Amino acid sequence: MQAQDRRLIRLRACLEQGLPLVPEPFKVLAEQTGLSVEEVRTWIGHWQHSGFIKRFGLVVRHRRLGLAANAMVVWNLPDDRVDEVGRRLAAEPEVTLCYQRVRRLGWPYNLFCMIHGVRRVRVEAQIRALIQRHGLEDVDHQVLFSRQAYRQRGGRYTPEEP
């Protein structure tokens, strides 16, 4: 294996651990991998553009921030309205995540949006306000509050050891 290949494998392994919480995280990645800062940025950009890295962002530990009332609102929208309603809901400050999924196995919902809050009563009020503000009173939906926090982690890019 060539030295460049080893450096890129090391970069992928470092990215799995998350960016270091320092003022210049790409500089630290460069030092850890033997690449230049520009090479680190270029490879990350290349991997994003090619689809190898689908998302490059934060993993927020909501409960550690005191946000224990977390609700996923699932909507059964006509397919021709999903993009438009999804864009409007995603623009709302209380919606932290909004995405479309294909209906599967009898699950009729095709739009999902997440709302995080400190108190359940407040999140429920925010959902009612969203429904009213966007004229979604007649749209079939469910509000699913989290009961358990699962371990959150970023993407995995290197093969796991057997």
Rank of each mutant, 00 (worst) to 15 (best):
L97H: 06
E16H: 07
G106I: 08
A30D: 04
G117K: 01
A91R: 04
C14Q: 14
P93N: 10
C98W: 01
T33A: 13
Q126S: 10
N76Y: 00
R41K: 14
R133K: 13
E94N: 08
E160L: 15
F52C: 11
G117T: 02
V59M: 08
I127M: 04
W43C: 14
Y157E: 07
Q132T: 14
A149V: 06
T158V: 15
L97R: 13
L97F: 01
Q32R: 11
H134A: 08
S50H: 07
C14D: 08
V22G: 12
R156H: 09
Q2N: 12
P23A: 14
E94K: 02
F112V: 06
E31A: 14
A30N: 05
Q32T: 05
Q132F: 00
Q142S: 06
V74Y: 05
S36R: 04
R122E: 10
E39R: 14
A149N: 08
V60H: 05
R133C: 10
R55A: 14
H46P: 00
F52V: 13
D83Q: 10
W75C: 05
T96V: 09
Q32I: 10
G106K: 07
W107N: 15
L97P: 00
R122L: 12
R101T: 11
Q142G: 08
A149L: 07
V123P: 02
Q126P: 00
Y157H: 13
V95Q: 02
P25H: 11
V40Q: 03
G117I: 02
L136I: 02
V74S: 11
P93W: 00
R147S: 14
D80W: 00
G135Y: 01
K54V: 05
E39G: 05
N76A: 15
E38D: 13
A3D: 05
M1T: 05
E160C: 09
L58M: 07
E137K: 07
A30Q: 04
A149Q: 10
A68Y: 00
Q142R: 13
H49T: 09
R87N: 12
S50W: 00
P93S: 12
P20W: 04
F52I: 11
V28D: 11
I9Y: 01
S146T: 02
